[in-house]
Structures are given as structure tokens and as C-alpha cells.
Design a protein around this nucleic acid. Structure first.
Lengths: 205, 205
DNA sequence: GGAATGACAGATATTGAAATCTGTCAGCTG
DNA sequence: CAGCTGACAGATTTCAATATCTGTCATTCC
């Protein structure tokens, strides 16, 4: 066993209570009990500590839930950042791939584990600040794709960020959790393509 | 006083209990008490009859609420039909006018009387069949505009109805009641125009 | 001495008994 | 007789008592 970093006493068996461990336990409790019934007492119990100890790392229950929300949103952003980075690829293909990846990611999350998806949708509703940041992040990625398309002479846009926001808003039906019921209906894929076709036509130089 | 239509006994003072009068009373009760507390007993009381009489005209409370919902949705559709009928006008201008009229109508309903808007949003959520019909009606109107644009050589579209649906979905943020909170934020008008610009560019022949 | 505990006050959620509502129908009323 | 009434059974909602939770902090434990 290697001693972990610079700890005064090495406290071997009962791992130190870190913010990270609390967040993991909170995700687990949310998965098990859902957002309405998940209490910080549950989280403390899952960790084998008193609930007072949790309050040492997170000032309030709301702050704890917000931190969980941020982690989750960041994981989504990271997955898409890879497509933005594919510098060599045709801008239109990159745009389509990015939009499809976003749609697919959401669709699979909603379809594979509906309860967990509902849980995170509830959390997102409680933390509009975290969501706004996430949305800025995503539109920033889109703007990056638009900008490179303009530079390559493939797209026209007076202001890539405004254009990116327009594309994002126009595809809301295919990524906004509020529409998740529609994602399982037969024709959605075609609807998605019809919208993306219209948008890419509108973007072309 | 002129006798009303063909009535067997003329029953002058206490007006006959018609489906129409019940619907009006129901709208009033919904306006006063909201969707959660509006009961059919309330409706009967407002009309000065027993609740049994209401059930003579509407089989269930749900059917009564659905009828109210339909009336309300139909009023919205009719208002927009006028723009579709402006045959002489430039297709692109007609499309923009139609989308703006829809956005403005929704925005004013939500802004002027938020509680009534919330009430009707709840009713709409309960009556997805009526809503689906309404949506078909609206996309039909849009398709009519697209079709006339294609005929005039101003628009390109392999299938006007599919294209109309794409335009409708792409502008969901500006007519779907779920987004009503966004309609009061400062930049919405610009966001709306950015989306409509992109879509009209995509439609042009 | 820094981290964790657990008792506590006020806020929030749960529960089950009582009140109200929905939908039916036999009978009243004009 | 057509239309309306009001009593009724079962479903749903309300309300208040009870239990649980949140957030604090004086005290305990390594």
C-alpha cells in the first residue's frame, strides 16, 4: 500500500471522507431513491458517517445536488468536444456529426435508463445556473465548428456565436429533455434529418 | 324579444342549458379557480343547475375539459389562417409573418395573463389528442405557404409537408408553451430572427 | 487541533381519517 | 315525456397530527 499524498496520520482502512467520495455516494443514492426521496441522511448512511460530516464538505443539500449536476453535465460536454477537435474534417460533416452525437447521447440516456434520466432532468431543473453554463459551453463548441466552416469558405455567418445559438435553438426538439417522449416515436430520425438539412442549406456560403 | 330558433316550449327567462353555455361557464370557472380546483360541481353552481345536468351534455369531466381545450386551440388556428390566405403576398414574407404572428400570439397570451396561460397549458397537457390535431392543423397551414412558395419558384422543397414540419420543429422554442419563460428575456426577438433567417435561407430555391 | 459526532430547532414530508368530488340513476316536475 | 334533480357508492382531495429531514454547533475523539 502506497501512502496517499501528504496526510498527517496515514489512516489506512476507513478512507478519508473527500468531496469526491460524497459525490459518488450521492449519485448512488439518487440512482436508488430518486430525486424526491434522496436525503443527505441517506448519503451519510451510505458512507457510514454522520450527516454532520457531509455538511463539512457541502454547505447545503442544494449545493451538493448542484455539484452532482455539474459533474454530470460536464461529462456530456467532454464527449462532444472530441468532434469539435477533428480539425481535418469537412465542416458540414463535422456539424452534422456533432448534432447527431448530441441527439444520440440524449436519446440513449433517456431510453436506456428512464428513471435515471428523469432524476437528472429534475436536478437540471433545480440548477438553472449550472445548466446555463453547460448550454454556453455547448453553443461555444458549435460556434467553433461554424467559425472553422466560415474560415474554410464552406459556411456564411456574420457572427458565428449567434449562428451557433440559432442552430442550437432550432434543434432543441432533439436535445432538450422536455421532448424526450418524442425521441422514441418512429419518425424522429427523419424529422431530425429534415431539420438538419434545412439548417445546413441555410448555412452554406 | 325574438323566439330562439325552433324550440318546443319557449321557456323564456331561464335560458336553455346548452353545451355552449356549459363551455362558457367552464371557461369562467377555470379562469377563477385554476385547473386543479375547477370541479364540475363548480360549473353546475355557476349555471344554477345540479351537476347531474352537466353530465347530460358531457359524459365525463375529462370530455368537458377536452371540449374547452379544443375551442381554445381552434381560436388560435383561425387567427393564423388569415395569413395563409393572403395569396398575393411574397411567400417568404408570408412565412415570416405567419411565424411571427404565432410567436406574438403565444407571447402575449403568456405575458398578459400568466395564470390563464398556465391553466390552458395544463389542459393541453391532459389532451394530447386535441393538441396533436391542432399541431397537424398548424403544420398544414405552414405546408400551404411552403407549397405556394415552391409553385412561385421562391422555395425549394421535395415534400412541402415534411419541410413545414421541419420549420415548425425548428421554431418550437418560439411557440411551445414549455419555453414560455424564455419569451420574456431581452434577446429573444433577436434569437427568433436568427433562427428564421437561417430557415428562410435554407428554403430559398 | 482538525475532523467527526449527535442532539437540537425549525422546516418539510408522510400518513390516514374526514370531506369533497365524480359519475349513475331512480324518481320528480312542468 | 324530456329535462332536471339529488341521494348514493367509490374515487380523489384536504387537512392536521406525526415523523423525518435540514442545517447548526457545543462536545468528543484521535
Amino acid at each position: 500500500m502506497i501512502p496517499e499524498g501528504t496526510v498527517s496520520s496515514m489512516a489506512p482502512t476507513p478512507e478519508a471522507l473527500t468531496a469526491e467520495r460524497i459525490l459518488e455516494a450521492t449519485e448512488e443514492v439518487l440512482r436508488r431513491h430518486g430525486p424526491a426521496k434522496a436525503t443527505v441522511v441517506d448519503v451519510a448512511r451510505a458512507l457510514g458517517v454522520s450527516h454532520g460530516s457531509v455538511y463539512r464538505h457541502f454547505r447545503t443539500k442544494a449545493a451538493l445536488r448542484e455539484a452532482v449536476t455539474k459533474r454530470w453535465l460536464d461529462r456530456t460536454s467532454e464527449a462532444l468536444a472530441g468532434i469539435v477537435a477533428e480539425a481535418g474534417r469537412d465542416p458540414e460533416a463535422r456539424l452534422r456529426a456533432w448534432l447527431l452525437a448530441l441527439f444520440d447521447a440524449k436519446r440513449h440516456k433517456a431510453g436506456d435508463d428512464p428513471e435515471l434520466f428523469a432524476t437528472y432532468t429534475t436536478l437540471a431543473g433545480e440548477n438553472s445556473d449550472a445548466v446555463d453554463e453547460h448550454l454556453d459551453d455547448l453553443t461555444g463548441q458549435l460556434a467553433e465548428i461554424v467559425r472553422s466552416g466560415v474560415d474554410a469558405g464552406a459556411f456564411t455567418s456574420a457572427d458565428p456565436l449567434t449562428t451557433a445559438r440559432a442552430v442550437f435553438h432550432a434543434t432543441a426538439r432533439f436535445h432538450d429533455p422536455g421532448y424526450h417522449r418524442e425521441w422514441e416515436r418512429p419518425g424522429v430520425q427523419d424529422e431530425f434529418e429534415a431539420v438538419v438539412d434545412l439548417l445546413t442549406r441555410g448555412l452554406r456560403a
